[in-house]
C-alpha cells in the first residue's frame, strides 16, 4: 500500500546518531557525498563503506530497513549497470558474443558505480532514519542563518518545510480514504488502458486537493488564533547544541575525507 514507503521514515530509537546535533548530521551528509565522489578507486570506496558501517552501527537502525531504501532506485541501478557493462571501453576482453563485448575494466567500473549509488542512497536515508523532521528543519534553519543578512526568509522556509513533511502521512491517509469511497461507487484504479486509468484519478485528485486547501485554511486560522507572528519574537522549545558526539562525528568525517584523498595516490585501477 501507499503507507509502506520506507525512505524518509524516522526510526524511533535512542542512539549515538539519534542524539547528535542535526546540523552536524546535515553537514556530515554533505561531506560524505563529497567523499563518495572524491573516491576514485576501490581503496577510497572501501574507506567510504567503512565510514558508512560505523555510522550504521552508531545509529542502531536495522540493516534491512536501511537497505530497503535501495528498492526505490533499483531500476536506475540495473539500467546504469547494464549500460556501463556493455559500453565502457576497456582492453582485457573477458567475454564476447556477436557485437557484445564485456571487458574486465567494464566489469570493475560497473561494480564501482553500483557501490557508489547504493552508498549515496543509504547514507542519505540514514539521516532521515535518525533525525525527526522537526529537528531536521531546525538544523536547516540554523545552518541557513547567514542568509538572513540578505533578507532571505529562512524561518518561513523552515516552517513551510516542516509543515509539508508533517502533512505527507495525513494526505496519504486521506488519499486512501477517498480511493475507498470511490471504489465503493464502482471506480477502478487497477484496470483498463493508461488513458482510462489516468481518467480514474480525477475523482480522487479533486477531493484531495479540496481537502488540502481546507486543511491549509484551518491550519492558518489555528496559527492566527494562537497569535503566530513569524520569527521575530519566537524562542525555541528545544535548543540544539554542539556536543562531544558532534566532535567525534567531525573528526571521523575529517579522517574519512583525508583518507580518501590520500589513497588516491595508491597504485591500482583508477576510474
Amino acid at each position: 500500500m501507499l503507507k509502506d514507503i520506507a525512505f524518509g521514515q524516522y526510526y524511533p530509537v535512542s542512539s549515538f546518531l539519534h542524539r547528535a546535533d542535526p546540523r552536524m548530521k546535515l553537514l556530515s551528509l554533505v561531506a560524505f557525498i563529497v567523499a563518495i565522489f572524491l573516491a576514485s578507486n576501490f581503496y577510497g570506496i572501501g574507506l567510504c563503506i567503512l565510514g558508512f558501517a560505523l555510522a550504521l552501527a552508531a545509529s542502531r537502525v536495522p540493516v534491512r530497513k536501511v537497505f530497503r531504501s535501495v528498492k526505490g532506485i533499483l531500476f536506475l541501478l540495473v539500467f546504469t549497470a547494464i549500460i556501463q557493462l556493455f559500453f565502457y571501453k576497456g582492453e582485457t576482453v573477458l567475454f564476447s558474443w556477436w557485437k557484445i563485448v564485456v571487458t574486465k575494466e567494464a566489469l570493475f567500473y560497473t561494480l564501482f558505480l553500483i557501490l557508489r549509488l547504493v552508498l549515496l542512497v543509504t547514507v542519505a536515508s540514514l539521516l532521515t532514519f535518525t533525525t525527526t523532521p522537526v529537528s531536521l528543519t531546525d538544523g536547516l534553519e540554523s545552518l541557513l542563518y547567514p542568509l538572513k543578512l540578505i533578507r532571505f526568509p529562512v524561518h518561513e522556509l523552515a516552517l513551510i518545510m516542516s509543515i509539508a513533511l508533517r502533512f505527507i502521512p495525513t494526505l496519504i491517509e486521506e488519499t486512501e480514504r477517498i480511493m475507498n469511497a470511490q471504489k465503493a461507487r464502482g471506480a477502478e484504479f487497477e484496470r483498463g488502458s493508461l488513458f482510462s486509468r489516468a481518467k480514474a484519478v480525477i475523482p480522487v485528485l479533486i477531493p484531495l486537493l479540496i481537502s488540502a486547501f481546507r486543511r491549509a485554511e484551518e491550519l492558518g486560522d489555528a496559527m492566527d488564533a494562537r497569535c503566530y507572528a513569524g520569527s521575530k519574537v519566537r524562542t525555541k522549545y528545544k535548543k540544539i547544541s554542539f556536543g562531544w558526539r558532534d566532535l567525534v562525528i567531525f573528526l571521523v568525517m575529517a579522517g574519512l575525507i583525508a583518507g580518501v584523498v590520500l589513497v588516491k595516490q595508491l597504485p591500482g585501477m583508477v576510474f
Binding site: R177, I178, N180, A181, A184, R185, I202, P203, P207, S211
Partner: peptide
C-alpha cells in the same frame, strides 16, 4: 463513508 461530502468531485 464517514463525512461522505468530502468525496464529491464532479
Amino acid at each position: 463513508f464517514q463525512y461522505p461530502e468530502y468525496q464529491l468531485f464532479a
